[in-house]
Design a protein around this nucleic acid. Structure first.
Lengths: 116, 116
DNA sequence: GGCCGTTTTCGATGGCGCTCGTACTATGGC
DNA sequence: GCCATAGTACGAGCGCCATCGAAAACGGCC
C-alpha cells in the first residue's frame, strides 16, 4: 500500500478562547498534574514525557498529559520517538490573568516548605 | 431562661497557615462552590446561607459551605436562627497571593460572557 | 528486516465526592 | 408551651476519574 502518509505525528491543541475556567481548574486540581506543570515551569525549557518525576505509571502519565493539553495548559510536539512538552504560559496569562502564576507560586512555595 | 445547655453556637475555622493549596483548589473546582464564592464577593457584605442561588438542595448547599469553611475560604457565624457567611479575602490573599482574585476575576468574566 | 526505546490505547477496577430526602436540632415569636 | 423558620446530620445512590497492566503503534537504528 503506497502511502505518502506524512508521518510527522501531529497533536491537536485547543484555542485558549475555547477553554473554560472549569477545565483549567479541573486540570490543576490534580496533584500529579500540578507536579508536571511545576517541573515544566522550573525546567525553563521543553521536557519530553519520559523526563518527569511522578508517582504514577507511564500510562497514567499519558492520561494526565492529555488532560493538560486539552485544558490548554501545555503544548506538545513530537521529536523523533519522544514527545516534548511546553507550558503555554503567556497564552494562559492572557486568557486567565494571574491564575497559572498564582498556582505555580503557591505550588513551589509549598514544595519549599516541605523540603525545609 | 437559664439555658446554659447550649452556648451560642460556634463554628470552627482553620488558621490559613494550616490549609493547603490542594484544599483550596478542591474547594474552588466545584461550580456550585464557585457560585457561592462569587455571590459572596459581589454582594459586598455578609450573606446568610438561605440567600444564595444555586441549583442544588439545601442539604447539599450545607455540605458546600462546610467544604468552603474547612478550606479557609469563608467564615461563618450565627445571628439568631440564621448563619452568616463572609469571604476571607484578605487572609487568602496573604496565604495564596493572587489565587482567589484570579479565580474570581475569571469567574465573573465568564459570567458576563454568558449573559452577553 | 528486525529489535529497541518511547509513548499510547484499551478495558477493568476502585474510591471519592456530589447529590438527594428525611429526620432532627436550634432559635425566635406568639 | 407551641409552631414556624433556618440550617444540619445521616445514610444511600451514583457517576466520574485516577489508576493500573498488558499489548499495540511508531520511529529510529543496525
Amino acid at each position: 500500500m503506497a502511502r505518502p502518509r506524512t508521518a510527522a505525528r501531529t497533536v491537536e491543541h485547543p484555542d485558549l478562547s475555547e477553554v473554560s475556567l472549569q477545565q483549567v481548574l479541573e486540570a490543576l486540581v490534580d496533584p500529579v498534574r500540578r507536579m508536571v506543570v511545576s517541573q515544566l515551569s522550573q525546567a525553563g525549557e521543553d521536557k519530553s514525557c519520559g523526563t518527569f518525576e511522578a508517582p504514577v505509571s507511564l500510562s497514567t502519565l499519558t492520561h494526565h498529559f492529555n488532560v493538560l493539553r486539552e485544558a490548554g495548559l501545555i503544548r506538545q510536539y513530537y521529536v523523533g520517538t519522544t514527545k516534548m512538552n511546553t507550558l503555554r504560559t503567556d497564552e494562559m496569562e492572557e486568557r486567565f490573568p494571574g491564575l497559572l502564576s498564582a498556582v505555580l507560586a503557591a505550588s513551589t512555595a509549598q514544595a519549599q516548605a516541605d523540603t525545609a
